[in-house]
C-alpha cells in the first residue's frame, strides 16, 4: 500500500515582520538568509498522519512529493528523517507561484508518473497564501474522492479510509473507498521529532528530482487570476499616559482617547 504526502516549502510563518521584504516588481515576499524556509506546518501533519497509518497498516510505503522552486534540501529532507521512504521534488521557476492550479496539476502528474497512490494526504492549506485549493484540484484531476479537515485518519480492511473531521463545535466521521485524497488539520498533532540515527541516515539519502519535461501535464487553465498588490503590515507602538485627578476622570479621558482614535465606537453607531 502506498501513501503520497504533498509538501510545500513556505516562508516560516513565525518570521518576524521586520525580516520580510516585499519584492514589489515581482509581487512576492522575500526573506533574508537568516530566516530559512520551513515545510508547511499542515503538510508536516500530513506526514505525521501517514507515519501513524504505517504503525497500524504495517506495510505502507510513504512518498513525499514537493512541487515548487528553490528548495532548501536540508529543510525538505526532514520528511526523510522522520521516516518517509522517498522524497520526490519538482523544481521550476514557474512553480514559484501562489496560483494553486499549476501546482495541483504538477502534483497530479507526479503521482501518475510514480504509478498512483492508495491514499494522497495534503495539509488543509498552505500557511503562506491560505488558498486551500490544491487538494480539491488534485482530487479532481486524479478522479478521487476528497475527505477534508481530518484530525484522525485510519484505513479499514485495506480498502477504505475513515476520518474524523473537525467541526466548529464537534466532530464528524466520514469514510470513502480508496484511493482517496485526505486533507489534515492541526488538531491531528505536530510532526514527531526524528531520532538522530534517522537524521544521519537522511543526510545520506538524496531526494529524487523530476523535471516538468518528464511529466505529462494536463492543459493549463484558460485564464489565471493575478496578484495586483501585496502589503506587509506595519507594526509599531505608541504609548500614551492618561493624566487625570482621579480614577473616574482617567476613565473618562481613556474613553475619549479611544473614541478619537477610532478604536471604539459609541453604541448604535455602525
Amino acid at each position: 500500500m502506498r501513501a503520497i504526502v504533498c509538501l510545500k516549502q513556505v516562508i516560516d510563518p513565525l518570521t518576524p515582520a521586520t525580516s520580510l521584504v516585499l519584492d514589489a516588481a515581482e509581487r512576492k515576499i522575500r526573506v533574508g538568509a537568516s530566516a530559512p524556509p520551513v515545510i508547511n506546518g499542515f503538510d508536516e501533519q500530513g506526514v505525521e498522519a501517514a507515519l501513524r497509518l504505517r504503525e497500524t497498516v504495517g506495510d505502507l510505503e510513504i512518498i513525499c512529493v514537493a512541487v515548487g522552486d528553490r528548495f532548501n534540501s536540508d529543510v525538505m529532507k526532514r520528511a526523510l528523517a522522520v521516516g518517509a521512504d522517498q522524497l520526490v521534488m519538482v523544481q521550476d521557476p514557474s512553480l514559484d507561484t501562489w496560483n494553486s492550479y499549476p501546482i495541483a496539476t504538477t502534483l497530479a502528474a507526479v503521482i501518475r508518473h510514480l504509478g498512483g497512490a492508495d491514499i494522497v494526504i495534503c495539509g488543509r492549506q498552505g500557511s503562506d497564501w491560505d488558498n486551500g485549493l490544491v487538494p480539491f484540484i488534485l482530487a479532481d484531476q486524479l478522479g478521487m474522492p476528497i475527505l477534508t479537515l481530518a484530525k484522525q485518519v485510519t484505513i479499514a480492511d485495506g480498502r477504505r479510509v475513515e476520518v474524523e473531521r473537525v467541526l466548529a463545535d464537534g466532530t464528524m466521521a466520514m469514510q470513502a473507498d480508496l484511493p482517496a485524497v485526505v486533507t489534515v488539520t492541526s488538531e491531528l498533532g505536530a510532526l514527531r521529532m526524528p531520532t538522530v540515527a534517522a537524521r544521519l541516515a537522511a543526510v545520506r539519502k538524496q531526494p529524487r528530482q523530476l523535471t516538468l519535461a518528464e511529466l505529462t501535464l494536463a492543459d493549463p487553465a484558460a485564464s489565471a487570476p493575478e496578484v495586483c498588490d501585496l502589503a506587509i503590515p506595519v507594526t509599531g507602538r505608541n504609548c500614551t499616559f492618561i493624566e487625570a485627578q482621579d480614577g473616574a476622570g482617567a476613565g473618562a479621558r481613556l474613553a475619549e482617547t479611544l473614541l478619537n482614535a477610532g478604536v471604539v465606537r459609541l453604541g448604535g453607531e455602525r
Partner: peptide, 15 residues
C-alpha cells in the same frame, strides 16, 4: 529552524 528557541517572537535578532 531559526537559530533561537523563542518561536513566535515578533522580533528579529537586531530589532
Amino acid at each position: 529552524q531559526r537559530g533561537h528557541p523563542w518561536a513566535g517572537t515578533p522580533f528579529s535578532r537586531l530589532d
